[in-house]
């Protein structure tokens, strides 16, 4: 699979009065074409700065960034990508239709039928004649998505696309993003909505203080949680045999429910259950939650930084 986005040691340094700060620090990112990629991190982690560098709106201090095989900021690449900024603002005097006409004109597109179909796609056909100032936040976000689809992009950058939306608007935007994947588009989402990311993203990267702390397939990153085993007709003395394992158990009416911490212990437990003539009802790997992974990652990075800084101070 070709790379939609590839960065190597991408760094952005800002000069402050009391020194320099690396807002993005040696970032290595790889996003495949056709996937939905979640770019996660707490506020101030460097997410928006990274997106701006990928779009060529700001310039990296060092490192490389390629978007769809070309240097970031290449004007020809801008014909096949699109961007929805966080809390977008549009010229408020314009109507929804005028917004599409304006952004369309920047691509040389003047196709009223296309504008109409985009408005229908984002459920704004009935409000096309209203000025943007009369649009709710969800409607503004939807017109933002419509403008980002004008050029039928191969790659979409969505910065907090569901931020501050009510649950219905939230679900509508999420469903639209899922449709993009079906159409073969690559979607790069920066978001705080972890439940959405967990539901729609193929791969994620977690960035904290400008550094990528984790990156990979969501399934792989969330693997390694507990494994739940349920068995019936278990002899009453069986739970006592598990005391040396990292296992949480509950036994009631010959039904045993086990939560096994270590994957390598599972086969041994299952063999023991079979030897005890127990009936194994289910073996379910319980995935970690993205929220737990996110918190754990962010906490680890913060602790490492604190340790490094205090070490340097000594």
């Amino acid at each position: 699979m070709a790379a939609a986005i590839e960065t190597k040691s991408l760094t952005k340094t800002y000069k402050l009065r009391n020194g320099k700060v690396n807002v993005v620090d040696k970032l290595d990112l790889y996003v495949e074409e056709g996937e939905i990629f979640g770019f996660l991190g707490p506020n101030g982690a460097g997410k928006t700065t990274t997106i701006k560098m990928l779009l060529g709106i700001i310039y990296p201090t060092s490192g490389e960034a390629k978007v769809l095989g070309k240097e970031a900021g290449d004007i020809n690449t801008h014909r096949i990508i699109s961007y929805l900024p966080e809390k977008p603002y549009y010229y408020e005097y314009m109507t929804g239709m005028e917004i599409l006409k304006f952004y369309g004109s920047l691509f040389g597109i003047n196709d009223p039928a296309k504008f109409q179909s985009l408005l229908e796609r984002v459920n704004l056909a009935g409000d096309a004649g209203k000025p943007i100032s009369a649009y709710s936040k969800g409607m503004q976000q939807r017109i933002g998505l419509a403008q980002s689809l004008l050029n039928d992009p191969r790659l979409l950058f969505l910065d907090e696309p569901t931020g501050g939306l009510d649950p219905i608007a939230h679900i509508e935007i999420r469903d639209l993003i899922l449709q993009f994947r079906e159409e073969g588009k690559t979607v790069f989402i920066s978001s705080h909505a972890l439940s959405d990311v967990e539901r729609i993203c193929d791969r994620v990267a977690i960035i904290n203080k400008g550094v990528i702390a984790r990156q990979g397939k969501l399934d792989e990153l969330l693997r390694g949680g507990r494994i739940e085993v349920i068995a019936d007709q278990v002899p009453a003395d069986f739970p006592a045999k598990l005391k040396d394992l990292k296992v949480t158990s509950s036994y009631n009416n010959a039904r045993l429910i086990l939560d096994i911490d270590e994957e390598e212990d599972v086969n041994g437990v299952l063999d023991s259950l079979r030897s005890a003539k127990a009936h194994i009802v289910s073996v379910i790997p319980r995935r970690k939650k993205l929220e737990d992974l996110f918190l754990e990652t962010v906490k680890n990075v913060s602790e490492k930084r604190t340790t490094t800084m205090s070490g340097a101070a000594q």
Binding site: L55, I57, N76, S82, Y83, P85, E86, Y90, L106, Q147
Partner: peptide, 14 residues
Amino acid sequence: ERRTIYTILSKPVQ
């Protein structure tokens, strides 16, 4: 400030 420039410069506009 209003971020309108970002949507414009992310289009094929120099």
